[in-house]
Nucleic acid binder design. Sequence first.
DNA 1: CGAACACTTGAACCTAATCAATGAGTGTGG
DNA 2: CCACACTCATTGATTAGGTTCAAGTGTTCG
Lengths: 233, 233
Amino acid sequence: MNKDRYLETVRKSSLFRTLRGESFAVLMENGVLRSVEEEAFFFMQGEPATHVYVLCEGRARMVQYTPNGLQITLRLVTPGQTFGGVALLQPSSGYPVTAQAMQDCLAIGWEARFLQMLAEKEPSIALNTMQLMHHYIVELQERQQALSAARVEQRIARTLLKLAAQAGRKTEAGILIDFPLTRQEIAEMCGTTLYTVSRTLNEWERKGLLDIGREKVILLQPHGLVEIAEGFE
Amino acid sequence: MNKDRYLETVRKSSLFRTLRGESFAVLMENGVLRSVEEEAFFFMQGEPATHVYVLCEGRARMVQYTPNGLQITLRLVTPGQTFGGVALLQPSSGYPVTAQAMQDCLAIGWEARFLQMLAEKEPSIALNTMQLMHHYIVELQERQQALSAARVEQRIARTLLKLAAQAGRKTEAGILIDFPLTRQEIAEMCGTTLYTVSRTLNEWERKGLLDIGREKVILLQPHGLVEIAEGFE
DNA sequence: CGAACACTTGAACCTAATCAATGAGTGTGG
DNA sequence: CCACACTCATTGATTAGGTTCAAGTGTTCG
């Protein structure tokens, strides 16, 4: 049962970090390891929300499909993060988003009913859930601002900065966004087209703000991006 | 102590509807009636989040100001609804939005610390909070879709439909949005300009979908708007 | 009546989407 | 190892949707 390899990941996850001893053991016993390969789905928008997951390996994204068939990426999930949290609240209603693996993924999942039982003994789970939701709300509000009030340049800058904060790795050159990321994917995160992203990134490279390559972005002057993101131009 | 006039409003509010007897009495005792006149603020973005409110009379909006000075209206609050809910979760962090009265308002407010105490005796408050947050999240996600994937026409249509659902009154002619609402305000809700709103509403009036006037909108053919909102057309 | 406010409408402008063609990098099989 | 296919990316030309600016019409209210 190799899910024990991820004991630490779960213990540090924002949803369960307050669990100790017995409760934690019960938790791990009831979790089910699930592996999903690149491009495949943990769950789809609209499906009954039955499970809550903690990602252990890989990278996933939460996507929403619009009536027109366009897709927008709401957020990325990195190891240690929780997703599918709605299942705890409204098991009856479906997942409001689709969870898709961007790389081969491993995650541990729990049935909503089990977690609800556990939450009765461990009220901290409910508190943690609220914290998570709160974070998520703040994030959504920021994003909303970004989308409704900023021009594309600003949106792209914000997206890159957020990605760097979430998955950046310092190298001697600058901050590398530490996984393959196509122009198309960036575009879906900030509500524009891959063409505009391409043009913009190239312009910024010319200005020395970035170093770009195939599925690669390195931030050389994060501060310059911050200025663009804030609208100081 | 005329806040007792609003006993029923509070008893039906989504945050406190599960409270009975003693707890409810304590609740009402600790609530403070606050009146805020048109255009004035309950609280401003960034201020320490100390109070949670239930609106009793009037109409308020939750606004966010962008770095550029633009403002966007995140949601409208109608009597019986809760606002300032973040105070429960992260009293230390500031309010993430500004609450402004659109008309003269009356609301009852509680200190976050008091509610936290009460929540320990009445776990249903925590549950209700989670329900509220969940609703809010779903709403934000819908809105995000609306903003990132739809053209202005669709956004305006959605905004009107949502307003009608929230504050519509059936008349013999159609659904009247039951409070004064300027083109500017509509524009701020869907991230466009008053000019575009004006043009669009007039076009729709010509098509017979609406009946418009000064600070007045009546939906004559809601179904037609739904079609526009969904992107058929 | 006059001033402030809400709204309308035309014209110029501009951002970013769209379309189309091409180039660069990666991987696979013969 | 090279040829082919495929995906990712760049770049130019065109265009549409919306913003912005400016001028003017109604309305309401002190």
